[in-house]
Design a protein around this nucleic acid. Structure first.
Length: 357
DNA sequence: AAACCGGGGTC
DNA sequence: GACCCAGGTTT
């Protein structure tokens, strides 16, 4: 076992020297703020998808103090389209913590880093090792996969016992004096060679001692137990306009898209056409007997989230006098760009069936 | 421990 | 359609 472990770390570092192919703007970066920002953006996000966001954030907010002082809505607009919006909110809170408690100087102790909002074990280990060369092994999707395959571990990774097992193993394997380069290597290796699908076992430098390769279980590892259920939801958006203004609100309930904005939402349990919506009790509760004119009805929009499929429809109506609608605010249509919206709404706004009344 | 949180890419 | 992505927080 010990021999396999030495073989593993040695070959991995060797592979990294020969194939340092994944270039990224934050590679070799030593500024903890920049490392932190990239790691937050890359949580559950592909490098190619997060890259442009990272560059925009760095250019807009070069330091933690800049981010701490930023206008919140502006930050959410910069994050718009990236998903998992709690990351953005937590990132702002952490930036303010760094600015106030640590006077703008990024903390350099693992426990302090781990205690920041939005930073968990993975991100703390990444910052600690990359920025401060502290001996903490990263454990992300790549590491789970590489370790489970090479060592032939079929313990489910999405359980408490599994996480501890893999975390302990990862920490034991870490060469303490090369934590930055080793952490970098194992994640690159998982992304380039030991990929989830169609891994390149034929040319893999670890093949000789890879348990899964010899047992023919590569495609079965890592093991997960939980299967997610996807529910369908039907969002009927009323875009009510009065003169050059429309009603929007910020989503604050514990639900998807927190801190993003939307139009007047009438959610139904099943698909509903515009006639049903406009004659429904939810609509009448808001608009009562107010006079309105239907100006446009959009095509159906569909968006796939991790746990939900959102079917949306947009109905434009024009009212002839302003109403007080609880929870909603009336804003100039021209100022829509100042607010962050979920993808399905920006898609609608950019489509031909948009707001042109 | 389980549920929840986006958007995009790949097969 | 299923799975995954430089995961973390809430319930």
């Amino acid at each position: 076992m010990q021999a396999a472990r030495l073989f593993f770390t040695e070959k991995l570092l060797e592979w990294n020297q020969e194939h340092n192919s994944r270039s990224m703007p934050w590679k070799g970066e030593k500024d903890p703020y920049r490392i932190w920002l990239s790691e937050i953006i890359l949580q559950q996000t592909r490098v190619e998808q997060g890259w442009p966001y990272y560059e925009r954030f760095i250019s807009q907010y070069p330091t933690a103090n800049d981010l701490a002082a930023a206008n919140e809505e502006e930050v959410f607009r910069l994050w718009q389209g990236l998903g998992y919006y709690a990351r953005c909110k937590n990132m702002l809170a952490a930036a303010r913590e760094i600015s106030q408690t640590y006077l703008g100087r990024f903390p350099d102790k693992y426990e302090q880093i781990n205690a920041l909002k939005g930073i968990g074990p993975y991100t703390a280990a990444a910052i600690a090792s990359f920025a401060f060369n502290l001996p903490y092994a990263v454990l992300d999707g790549n590491v789970f996969r590489v370790l489970s395959r090479f060592f032939g571990i079929d313990t489910p990774m999405d359980t408490t016992a599994g996480k501890k097992l893999f975390a302990d193993l990862a920490q034991e394997l870490l060469p303490k004096d090369k934590s930055a380069i080793y952490n970098q290597s194992i994640m690159d290796f998982g992304a380039v060679v030991c990929k989830p699908q169609l891994p390149e076992c034929d040319t893999c430098p670890l093949q000789k001692k890879c348990a899964a390769y010899h047992e023919g279980t590569v495609s079965l590892l890592p093991v997960k137990t939980k299967k997610l259920q996807i529910k369908k939801r039907y969002f009927n958006y009323i875009i009510a306009s009065w003169k050059d203004q429309i009603y929007i609100r910020k989503r604050t309930e514990s639900d998807i898209w927190q801190n993003l904005h939307e139009f007047i939402l009438l959610e139904t349990a099943a698909p509903a056409d515009s006639t049903q919506i406009l004659s429904g009790t939810d609509f009448q509760q808001i608009f009562g007997e107010a006079a309105y004119e239907t100006t446009r009805i959009s095509k159906p929009f569909k968006q796939q989230l991790t746990h939900q499929t959102i079917h949306s429809q947009f109905i434009n109506i024009a009212i002839d006098q302003p109403l007080e609608i609880p929870g909603y605010q009336l804003i100039p249509t021209a100022s829509l760009d100042n607010f962050a919206f979920p993808k399905t709404i920006t898609s609608f706004l950019q489509s031909k069936t948009g707001l042109l009344l």
